[in-house]
Amino acid sequence: MSLAREVLHILENQARLQKFSRVHAVTVTIGPLAAVDGPALHFAFEAVTQGTLAEGAELHMEHPAARGCCRHCGHCFTMDSWLTPCPHCGGPAQAEGGQEMQVKDLQVSDEGMRRR
């Protein structure tokens, strides 16, 4: 919930900075190792945007790949969770990135709000 509210807060700020009144689609980047649950964010976003500039806006999620290198043998590979084992030796990985949570871009317009 509070992350969805944070998204809305960012939209409201950007509406002032970049001068738009309506948000139609939001793209967020969520790394596979970020501590956030995608479906829950979707649901919460829908709830918190009711009656706001982003009511009914689509929320698109991009999941960039996370890379990690094995702590035992040094082999580097793609991680889709903290538990992904090294494909060579089964060892644990040291993650490099993958925890990002970002509002990337928006589809916006200047049309008046449909309703309040």
Binding site: Q18, H24, A25, M101, Q102, D105, L106, E111
Partner: peptide, 18 residues
């Protein structure tokens, strides 16, 4: 697809949620 066509535009944000 309401809102996709017509006069919408894309704006870049790149702000961390946290």
């Amino acid at each position: 697809h309401e809102g996709h066509g017509g006069n919408t535009r894309q704006v870049s944000v790149e702000t961390d949620l946290l």
